[in-house]
Simulated scan of single mutants.
Amino acid sequence: MKAFLFPGQGSQKIGMGTELAAASSHAREVFEEVDDALGQKLFAIMREGPDDALTLTENAQPAIMANAIATLRVLEREFGVPTAQRAGCVAGHSLGEYTALCAAGAFPLAASARLLKLRGAAMQEAVPVGVGAMAALLGADLEAAAALAEAAAGGQVCEIANDNDPGQVVLSGHTPAIERAIANAKEYGIKRGVRLPVSAPFHCSLMQPAAERMAEALAETPPAALSLPLYANVTAAQVTDPRKVRDLLVRQVTGRVRWRESVLAMVEDGAERFVEIGGKVLAPMVSRTAPDARTASLVTMADLETYAKEHA
Results as ranks from 00 to 15, higher is better:
234 V>M: 01
44 A>R: 15
148 L>S: 10
6 F>T: 04
131 V>H: 12
305 E>Q: 14
93 H>L: 15
101 L>N: 12
75 L>K: 08
244 K>V: 09
278 G>C: 10
39 G>W: 04
260 R>M: 15
309 K>S: 08
260 R>N: 10
78 E>L: 03
251 R>N: 11
116 L>M: 07
235 T>R: 15
73 R>Y: 06
229 P>H: 06
130 G>T: 13
89 C>F: 05
119 R>G: 01
14 I>R: 11
294 R>G: 03
48 E>L: 02
284 P>V: 14
216 E>L: 13
135 A>E: 12
179 E>H: 15
218 L>I: 02
128 P>C: 04
269 D>I: 02
7 P>S: 12
29 E>R: 15
7 P>N: 14
27 A>K: 11
284 P>C: 02
229 P>C: 07
42 L>W: 10
58 E>V: 03
205 S>Y: 04
228 L>S: 09
230 L>D: 01
28 R>H: 00
136 A>C: 13
90 V>A: 04
19 E>I: 07
58 E>F: 06
251 R>G: 08
193 G>N: 07
191 K>Q: 12
266 M>C: 11
82 P>S: 09
121 A>F: 04
142 L>N: 04
142 L>A: 14
207 M>L: 13
118 L>W: 00
28 R>V: 07
114 R>G: 00
93 H>C: 06
184 N>I: 01
62 P>D: 06
232 A>F: 06
73 R>T: 11
293 A>Q: 04
228 L>H: 03
189 G>K: 10
165 D>G: 11
121 A>P: 00
148 L>Y: 09
122 A>T: 07
139 G>I: 04
3 A>M: 14
96 G>V: 08
291 P>T: 11
180 R>T: 15
16 M>F: 01
236 A>T: 07
72 L>A: 14
41 K>A: 15
77 R>S: 13
200 A>R: 01
22 A>Q: 15
161 A>W: 08
190 I>L: 03
169 V>A: 05
109 L>C: 08
125 E>P: 00
252 Q>I: 09
116 L>C: 03
289 T>F: 02
178 I>C: 13
185 A>I: 14
119 R>D: 01
263 V>S: 04
58 E>I: 03
250 V>F: 07
42 L>T: 02
36 D>I: 01
50 P>Y: 09
126 A>R: 09
87 A>C: 10
237 A>T: 06
64 I>Q: 05
250 V>I: 13
21 A>I: 01
252 Q>H: 09
192 R>A: 02
29 E>C: 00
148 L>Q: 13
257 V>R: 10
55 T>A: 12
132 G>Q: 11
56 L>Y: 09
133 A>P: 03
131 V>Y: 05
194 V>Q: 11
3 A>N: 04
140 A>H: 13
304 L>A: 05
155 G>H: 09
255 G>P: 04
151 A>H: 14
214 M>P: 15
256 R>Y: 03
18 T>I: 03
200 A>I: 05
294 R>V: 12
119 R>F: 00
195 R>D: 01
261 E>L: 05
235 T>A: 06
85 Q>H: 05
191 K>H: 08
232 A>R: 10
199 S>G: 10
291 P>S: 05
176 P>G: 14
304 L>F: 06
7 P>M: 13
